[in-house]
């Protein structure tokens, strides 16, 4: 059931890792461990979806995409800071990414996180879809980030198995 399909023709680990990131569980599918891939993939995507259901889709909040209102607010704040302090430098993208570290976990769940973020900032007018607050927001972020971290474990394991003829 979970034995490799053909040990001599397993795909290279980078391809397995990429497939695992693109679709959670797909790496296992590629190395022939379909039941494992299906169980892991479905569970990770369910956790991600439940996180979005609990906190709303704006729990995925990346520094890469902003709504029109968010961008205007940020540029205004930077302009004010620059007026008050001529040596002020606006934060670079890596610095802004570190201000929202939970997105690093969320993006590991795959392109679904980027699509969710895009929908969150573009739908609902200039403000985007409204943010949730307090405990439900925290739990939504927790679910989506944990889904991403679990997918990282699956990516590493599937890539290792592909280099080890399907075994651990």
């Amino acid at each position: 059931m979970s034995a490799p399909r053909n040990p001599t023709f397993l795909p290279p680990p980078p391809l397995v890792a990429l497939a695992s990131w693109l679709i959670p569980g797909a790496g296992y599918w590629l190395i022939g461990q379909r039941v494992r891939g299906l169980v892991i993939g479905v569970t990770i995507l369910l956790l991600f979806a439940v996180g979005l259901l609990i906190g709303g889709i704006r729990v995925v909040d990346s520094p890469l995409m902003e709504s029109v209102e968010q961008r205007t607010e940020r540029l205004n704040e930077e302009a004010i800071a620059l007026r008050n302090n001529s040596s002020y430098r606006p934060p670079t993208l890596p610095v802004r990414a570190l201000q929202k570290p939970w997105f690093i976990g969320q993006v590991l769940a795959g392109p679904v996180s980027l699509v969710t973020n895009y929908i969150g900032v573009t739908w609902g007018g200039d403000r985007g879809v409204p943010f949730s607050h307090a405990r439900v927001n925290e739990i939504g972020v927790l679910y989506t980030a944990v889904a991403g971290m679990l997918n990282l474990m699956a990516i590493i394991d599937a890539a290792y198995r592909s280099s080890n003829e399907g075994g651990r």
């Binding site: 979005l52 609990i54 906190g55 709303g56 889709i57 609902g124 409204p130 405990r135 439900v136 927001n137």
Partner: peptide
Amino acid sequence: FWQPLPVWDYW
């Protein structure tokens, strides 16, 4: 998905 789940007391 648009609004948070109304489970404030049972989080």
